[in-house]
């Protein structure tokens, strides 16, 4: 069962459309796998809609002083719009599969929509970046072969892992597909996987590897995440 979910605060910002794309993609992918969070999303959307569109809401206070100029602009706009065809229709969506380690996995819709760069391999770990161009925020697809492990590290910013397939463990326990694992500078961890796994990851700055020889591996942080 999925044990780790996005925080209430993250969900609210997600619903308001205020998060960076990588983060909203991860939350959307989690929601696709988690019925409880889907219900919460629906409830939050209707609540925020209500708040935005009430007659006495924060976006209405100046409504009384609309100018003639604005009225004219709105009228022209409305007339233009109603000349358009109402021609949208729905087509079935073909799920997108991703192949790794002899397996074929269906990717969540929001992740499947992103452009993926090519994979770079470092031992048992393979990583490809999503081309989102969000500055210090880096979104990646990561897969680790059975028995693989990432050296102990902490994060100066945050690291988000959304497990998509397989399983992995760290000092806090084991994770199943759909788990949304948000770590920040207070956490150290050494993730390892017995059966192999596929993850969506998002980090907001370089990692610090803090143990013995792994310190030498510091550049690997930039490579892996």
């Amino acid at each position: 069962m999925i044990k780790y979910h996005p925080s209430k605060q993250l969900m609210q910002k997600h619903v308001a459309g205020e998060l960076p794309v990588g983060l909203s993609v991860a939350i959307a992918a989690h929601i696709e796998l988690c019925g409880a969070c889907k219900l919460e999303l629906d409830a939050l959307e209707s609540k925020q809609a209500e708040a935005a569109f009430t007659n006495s809401g924060s976006y209405s206070e100046e409504a009384a002083e609309s100018s003639t100029e604005e009225d004219l602009a709105f009228e022209a706009m409305m007339n233009d719009i109603t000349q358009l065809d109402m021609s949208s229709e729905m087509v079935p969506r073909v799920p997108q599969m991703f192949d790794y380690q002899d397996k074929s996995v269906q990717l969540p819709r929001a992740i499947a929509a992103l452009k993926l760069g090519s994979f770079i391999n470092a031992g048992k770990v393979s990583r490809a970046r999503f081309e989102l161009d969000e500055g210090p925020l880096r979104s990646s697809l990561l897969h680790i072969k059975p028995g693989g492990e990432i050296p102990e590290h902490t994060h100066t910013g945050f690291e988000l892992t959304l497990l998509l397939d397989g399983s992995f463990e760290d000092e806090s326990g084991s994770y199943v597909p759909g788990d949304f694992i948000m770590l920040d500078g207070r956490h150290n961890h050494t993730p390892k996987t017995e059966e192999g796994c596929l993850c969506f990851t998002l980090v907001d700055s370089a990692l610090h590897f803090n143990k013995g020889l792994s310190k030498l591996l510091n550049p690997i942080g930039n490579l892996i995440y």
């Binding site: 569109f53 924060s58 976006y59 209405s60 409504a63 706009m77």
Partner: peptide, 8 residues
């Protein structure tokens, strides 16, 4: 909706 969307 239009005036509220504009202010948003």
């Amino acid at each position: 909706f239009a005036p509220k969307i504009k202010r948003f």
